[in-house]
Design a protein around this nucleic acid. Structure first.
Lengths: 357, 357
DNA sequence: GGCGCGTATGTTAGCGCTAACCGAATACGG
DNA sequence: CCGTATTCGGTTAGCGCTAACATACGCGCC
């Protein structure tokens, strides 16, 4: 049985009868090696079970290939789909993702970002645009390509991809008004921690107010979204404000709970009451009625963010020019604003007036 | 504006008027530094915006803190919950998780594992026990603590946490028999790629055969699980074998589709036909009937695996003893077999006979 | 007051690799 | 058969940090 001691390039080189440098050239596919020696080195590496040491190569100035990805959480299905998009794009490249969770907590995010930077990453992907001054400064100072995703309402550090949650909220409210609802209430969970949910509620509120149909009430809860929570909040809301004719929820899960409550309670959906969720969660296709919702295009968001990082990371020289100053010379980091997609479903009445204004 | 050049320990040391070594001691909280110098160094570090370089410190022999986690996919909700467990345990420790996806593909997994090892990780968590010989060899040779999760039916490389999918399948079949069903069919998606699904189907089949109630038929599909797929497969199955009185599905999503099909089709569930899923997916609580299913205890699995790694990583010395041979001296890596939890739901008839084999 | 002891700081060497340079070997035309 | 172009391969130095040892400094003690 082979010893457990780590096999280094030097071992491989010795076994192949060449210098370390030549072995290094072979391993990373740099040129200037004859076919014969290349074969010898490769054989030696395979024989010894050599595994490259990225730590050493990175320190010595090789390319970095880790990309830090910060999500608030992964239990939220939304982010795992974004991640799937990211990881699909990275797959054929040398980059790999390194996930860290911010836990909806600014101070924690700062620690996490510092941690990521300490690995000299090739790029960083952050969720949302709200970060502490410390985070912003660390990232700009580091010179690492940064892409912020999901939200686009604010000043990005580097690149930015997502939908405007404010506009998504406005969109929802406009659709609700167009369908003829006027006594609208808002229900949100995990507020105000979930900034994006807060933002879309704000957009909805704004449009309703402008149309002279200010929300009847707003019910918030700090708890984790769930169908049970949606049921319970909806019951409480309709109890206190029975005249409500439409509820805008901060996400699909609690909206689903609301729908089930309304159905169980004998309220006609969508005639007597309309319901809208957010996120276009696909397992909810099992509901008796298709929920009206908004698709935030999360898979695309992940893919585009990853592509931006790939572009920036592979074009960026590893060592900065000796006295260089300007960074990211148009490295492909830009702002991509996607349009949220409204999905009418069956929990809103058909439109009676054009959805403008 | 501060320059973008990287701030090194040497810069901090110079600014604080001490040697690099002293600065290093302060930064990593090693002792032997007076309060006064510590304060000076800390001030200098904060002033310069110093961010430690883990690459360098790891190479120099500092502790490693990355843990590679390999999942087949993250779109499957099951794994994101496992990850949540892992990440909760790592959170208060210096370790952080580094996710890579194997995509249900052995060759790809080998590349991914090599990649992870090249980062000199403090540990590796793998899904399942089926890995190529190359993966097993790389991991044993590297001497890195390894924990394999989910499945426990096989020979682990290092530690192992999970349920027996074979037994889970057997459990399901026993419950089905106990409820009085005899003409049982099996339906699986993403087979045979999803090895764990394959395994639980095998367990079920075995018990059924032993009880003289061999499966009427088995329907497999390579596609991704979805409710639509479940509907369609169920329709096809019941069309071809109308006498079927119970269907065991490889997971909840396709089982949900089956349930919806049966209800739409006017078949009485659970009287005329029983249905069982697998995974205890919680968003499915919106189904009209609570699905019979098995909870594979994924959150706990993630937590325990992470705890094993924490134990092994923190107890293991960084540099191996000069001539040392034996590794993992009882480093806390063991085999933890959890019992799968059966949840009867409402899609199986109440038990008429004791559920013993 | 010189001894030993413990705590604070500095010095030396090296982790495994790669960039940048440089010499040796090969090819080729005249 | 020699000079020049063109490979191929080796040498030197250093990335930023830490282990291990060496040194300096204070302290109490007989």
């Amino acid at each position: 049985m082979r010893s457990t001691r780590k096999v280094t390039l030097a071992d491989v080189a010795a076994a192949a009868g060449v210098s370390v440098m030549t072995a290094s050239r072979v391993m990373r596919g740099a040129g200037h090696v004859s076919a014969r020696t290349r074969a010898r080195v490769e054989a030696a590496a395979a024989e010894l079970g050599y595994v490259a040491n990225r730590i050493a190569s990175t320190l010595a100035g090789g390319p970095t290939s880790l990309v830090g990805v910060v999500f608030p959480s992964l239990s939220n299905h939304v982010y795992s789909e974004v991640f799937a998009g990211i990881s699909a794009v990275f797959d054929p490249t040398p980059l790999s993702a390194f996930v860290a969770l911010g836990n909806y907590h600014a101070a924690h995010e700062e620690k996490v970002v510092r941690d990521i930077l300490s690995w000299q990453p090739a790029g960083v992907i952050l969720t949302g645009l709200d970060h502490t001054e410390g985070v912003r400064e660390m990232l700009t100072t580091s010179g690492v390509p940064v892409v912020e995703i999901m939200d686009v309402d604010g000043e990005p550090i580097g690149g930015n991809v997502g939908i405007s949650f404010l506009e998504a909220g406005e969109l929802v409210a406009r659709e609700v008004l167009a369908a003829g609802y006027r006594r609208v209430a808002l229900i949100g969970s995990r507020m105000p921690d979930d900034l994006l949910a807060t933002r879309r509620m704000e957009g909805a509120r704004r449009v309703l107010q402008r149309a002279g149909a200010s929300p009847i009430t707003e019910l918030h809860d700090e708890g984790r979204s769930s169908i049970a929570l949606g049921r319970q909040m909806t019951a409480a809301l309709l109890d206190a404000y029975p005249e409500t004719d439409c509820i805008i929820y901060s996400n699909d899960l609690i909206a689903a709970g609301g729908l089930l409550h309304c159905l169980a309670d004998g309220r006609e959906v969508p005639d007597r009451i309309g319901l809208v969720g957010f996120n276009a969660v696909d397992t909810l296709e099992i509901l008796p009625l298709r929920l009206a919702t908004v698709d935030p295009r999360r898979r695309e968001v992940g893919e585009m963010a990853a592509r931006m990082i790939v572009g920036a990371a592979l074009s960026l020289p590893r060592r900065e020019p000796p006295e260089g100053e300007g960074r990211h010379p148009a490295s492909g980091l830009g702002v991509w604003k996607l349009a949220p997609r409204f999905m009418r479903g069956e929990t809103l009445r058909p439109v009676t007036a054009p959805a403008g204004g």
